[in-house]
Computed example of a mutant assay.
Amino acid sequence: MPREKIKIKKIDSLTARQATFSKRRRGLIKKAQELSVLCDADVSLIIFSATGKLCDFSSSSMEDTLTRYVLHSNNVEKPVQPCLELQMGNNKQEMLHKEVSNEFHKLRQMKGEYLEGLNMEELEQLEKKLEAGLSLIIKTEEERTLHEIKKLQRKEARWIKKNRQLKQEMKMMILSGGKSMTVNLEGDNKVLDAKGVLLEWLNNVSISGNRVPPVDNNCSHPSS
């Protein structure tokens, strides 16, 4: 009469479950020991009972076997991980592609394209964005112009100062010399004092002091 096949499921009776655990544990350890002897394999077995009791078997050193297992696990390539990373990368790429497409669409709408499908509320929002962008452009251009004006004013002040210094140096050079020169005016030789002529010329030279009118930093622009 054939033995009745036991259905694999949890045994409800605690006593029967403990008896089955003890019997099958001994059989499992025996099979592990036979496998290590027959096949010259390093076999290690770790079992925790339902109550947390530890049962183990090792054909050699348990510590050495566990160390070899950890090293082997770290070196083994996992084919599933690259697939997951590739899938995540594809999903992120697709998401970024959609975002770029949406931004290009918004940019074209701000240029006046693809406005047919927009309702009044969306058109008003687009108008507010354009007004805000225009205000920012005006403010940026204002700041750039003021910066250029101030730069030119500083440059002008340096040149005026330099011209005054040169004029003063020329006066000192003329006053330090005493030579006269002879010039021919309408055929008559006349002796002119070079010192006096040059001083008169220098006195008549005017240094431009015209300045760029100051710009009011709080100047207002008509609102768009």
Rank of each mutant, 00 (worst) to 15 (best):
K92S: 06
H72G: 10
Q18G: 05
I207S: 02
K31F: 01
A32F: 00
C219E: 07
E156T: 14
M173C: 10
Q109L: 02
Q168F: 07
M181E: 13
L202D: 04
R17Q: 15
D12R: 09
R108T: 02
I137M: 11
M170W: 07
K139R: 14
E169H: 04
T145V: 13
A41N: 06
L134R: 14
N91K: 13
S22Y: 02
L130W: 02
T140F: 03
V215K: 06
P213T: 08
I137D: 08
I11V: 09
K171P: 00
G117V: 10
K167W: 01
A19K: 15
A19T: 08
N189L: 09
L136R: 14
N210C: 05
L66K: 02
P79E: 09
M173A: 12
D216N: 15
A50S: 14
N217V: 10
A16Q: 13
K190E: 11
Y114V: 02
I149V: 15
S208R: 08
F57G: 00
A32T: 01
R164C: 05
G89L: 09
V76D: 06
I137Q: 15
V43M: 03
A157W: 03
N218R: 09
S223P: 06
Y69M: 13
S73G: 07
D216S: 09
K128F: 07
F104V: 08
R144H: 07
Q153A: 04
A157V: 05
K10Y: 10
R158S: 09
C219F: 12
D216M: 06
K190Q: 11
I6N: 02
S220F: 06
A16P: 04
I29T: 00
F21M: 04
L115R: 07
S73T: 11
M120D: 15
K139G: 02
M88Y: 05
V191P: 03
E4L: 09
K5I: 11
I207Y: 07
